[in-house]
Amino acid sequence: MTQHHETLAHLFLDGDEEEALFYINELLNQYSRAYLFEKVITPSMYYIGQLWEQNKISVADEHLATAVCDFVLSSLKENKERRKEYQHKALLFGVEKEQHYLGMKIVAETFKEQGWKVRYLGPDLALEHSLTQIEKFKPDVIGLSAALSYRLPTIKTLIERFKRLEWKPLIMVGGRMATKFDLDEFESDRVMVIKGLPHLRQWFKEGRAGVINETS
């Protein structure tokens, strides 16, 4: 039996935006947004990546699928139960020269579901530009995303700079890199490595977000 993520992946690869969005909204009648992000949308993109690695699809196919996935993420039904008052703020972006961004968009939606005010700045953001937004927004959490190991020096530079911010935000490091490599050296009371959406949701479930203001 074909799994939901495979069905969605082939809709992405067919370039069928309307059918892909319809399929996701139908699933929303049965499952939570959290389930869709963790068990359907994210695995669908991993599945597409595997097809590309196996030379079963072309780069153009992969780019088309990414564009359709982006459309679906931007068009999903709003969560009507979202809280009106924000207790915390998060700012998220992909490091300089990092082009992957769909995972970060899903993380942004996850923060919003938890009642956070979120600024998602997209991929490939230089340090000086991120600092401008960070100083204005003063987020409680700064989320950094990277997929490839040679972004590690950039991640380290960003962490060291953000540690000097006077209000002491929590720095989260995520992306495919965080699931494939041991990044324990970066972790501290100010830096957390997020190894996938289940890890982030566990952090929310444990209520650890509630202690941010107490420690900053």
Rank of each mutant, 00 (worst) to 15 (best):
T2S: 12
T7G: 06
L8V: 09
L13C: 04
D14L: 15
D16M: 07
E17I: 12
E17R: 14
E18V: 13
E18T: 15
A20I: 04
L21H: 04
L21I: 06
F22H: 15
I24A: 03
E26G: 12
E26W: 10
E26N: 14
L28N: 11
Q30T: 15
Y31L: 13
Y31M: 12
S32P: 08
K39W: 01
S44I: 01
S44A: 11
M45Y: 00
I48N: 05
G49K: 04
W52S: 08
W52E: 06
E53G: 09
Q54V: 08
Q54A: 13
K56E: 14
S58R: 02
E62K: 11
E62V: 13
H63A: 10
L64S: 10
A65V: 06
A67R: 12
C69V: 07
F71R: 08
L73A: 07
L73I: 11
S75I: 00
L76P: 06
L76T: 01
K77T: 12
K80T: 07
R82S: 05
R83S: 08
E85I: 09
Y86E: 11
Y86P: 02
Y86H: 09
Q87W: 01
K89C: 09
G94N: 10
E96N: 08
L102N: 11
M104K: 08
K105Q: 10
I106Q: 10
A108G: 12
E109Y: 10
G115D: 02
K117T: 08
V118D: 00
V118L: 06
D124I: 00
D124F: 00
D124N: 13
L125W: 05
A126H: 00
Q133T: 15
K136E: 10
K138V: 09
V141H: 04
V141L: 06
I142M: 00
G143L: 03
L144K: 03
S145K: 06
A146M: 01
A147K: 07
Y150F: 13
R151E: 07
T154P: 10
K156D: 14
R164H: 14
L165T: 04
E166I: 08
W167N: 03
W167V: 02
P169K: 07
P169T: 03
D182T: 02
L183E: 05
F186Y: 13
F186H: 07
E187L: 08
S188C: 07
R190G: 10
M192L: 15
V193S: 01
G196W: 07
H199I: 10
Q202V: 07
W203D: 11
K205D: 15
I212G: 00
E214W: 01
S216A: 12
